[in-house]
Design a protein around this nucleic acid. Structure first.
Lengths: 192, 192
DNA sequence: CAAACAAATTGACTTTAATCAAGGTTTTAT
DNA sequence: ATAAAACCTTGATTAAAGTCAATTTGTTTG
């Protein structure tokens, strides 16, 4: 649904009808069933992707085949592997749908055309990347300075809507702890 | 030393003499003795800062007054609190000099003027922020999926020049482990 | 140069979280 | 509706890392 994207954009920047049309022309809708991949490790990611519906996760898989979730993303948020996109290198991550979802894709070239011809769109993109960086820094801070319980509380305070929407073992994976540990933490915190 | 900055810039983008002069005019040199603060928690960070000499760290301090290092930064790299700069909010971090250092400061307003009047400078800044974001994502991945030993090895492989330049207890702090644990890990890995 | 300080190491012990295994519970698909 | 999966919980045990305390090594600086 391009309408969701248009609303998101117009909420943050001014766009003429022509500019909005220019954007619409280069977006491709991709529907994903639950569990379906948007990106698999080893592939090169060549898009910018905006979620109009559903919930996805970005995760890595290590040698012992444990999954580690780097990020969740839901409606009105962007997703993709910026490292692969920026450098043209194979991705170390997987992205798949946690729910039936819908994503708008804009190829790298088309996206560059848009940012070049629509300055306020470029500004918005810059702002989003900068905010993403800030969020990452805060997550790093949390991960090196908090206990498992503190990380969970923190996540519940700041992103309860996601914590309640995805399976609990994925929350554990995102926090870097085991599902058993998370279950015990929850039991503890309920008592309090 | 503005020369270091000029060299860094010219290495990556084309700049006319006038553009370079425009940049020079708004940079302020700040010398820092070892242990001196560039930013203290609670202050608002209002600059973009480029390091021409030395080594600094960004860290947080928790309730138990443990320090946790978010980042190291050396010559030819940028430093600051982007969250505070972006939102005008008090910083949760401290930045201080690990060695006698020299930093070039450009105020937020002057920096905005530069990015506006020098498009290739804007592009460079965007690229740097994007790369920083990618680096953060990879560090998050490492922190949730690796053991203490793996994190240390990883850091040594990718940033040995920093690992060897700063005190060992700061490396521990950066990795989110105690100095004792790091000491033991090093003893182990020497045997192998 | 020596005293004072800061950093690193080591040992003994405790705490936290991971692992392994078994049962319940809920969800999904036929 | 029911069987199969997936998910969550719980207990027992093990492993990893933290804490506390003492000692050694290394670095500043008066």
């Amino acid at each position: 649904m391009f309408e969701v994207f248009a609303k998101y954009l117009l909420n943050q920047i001014q766009l003429s009808d022509e500019e909005l049309e220019m954007i619409r022309e280069v977006t491709v809708v991709r529907k994903l069933r639950k569990n379906q991949y948007l990106l698999q490790e080893g592939d090169i990611w060549r898009f910018n992707a905006f979620i109009t519906k559903g919930c996805l996760r970005t995760y890595s898989v290590n040698d012992k085949s444990n999954e580690h979730i780097i990020n969740f993303a839901i409606e009105n948020w962007w997703i993709g592997d910026r490292e692969s996109l920026l450098n043209g290198t194979p991705s170390r991550f997987n992205i798949d749908a946690i729910e039936d979802s819908e994503v708008l894709l804009i190829s790298k070239d088309n996206f560059a055309m848009l940012t070049k011809s629509i300055p306020q769109f470029q500004d918005l993109v810059n702002l989003i990347i900068e905010r993403s960086f800030v969020a990452s820094q805060n997550r790093i801070n949390s991960s090196i300075s908090h206990s498992a319980e503190e990380k969970y509380k923190n996540f519940m305070e700041k992103q309860a809507h996601i914590a309640l929407r995805v399976p609990q073992h994925m929350v554990a994976s995102y926090l870097g702890i085991t599902p058993e540990t998370l279950s015990r933490i929850r039991k503890q915190t309920l008592k309090k």
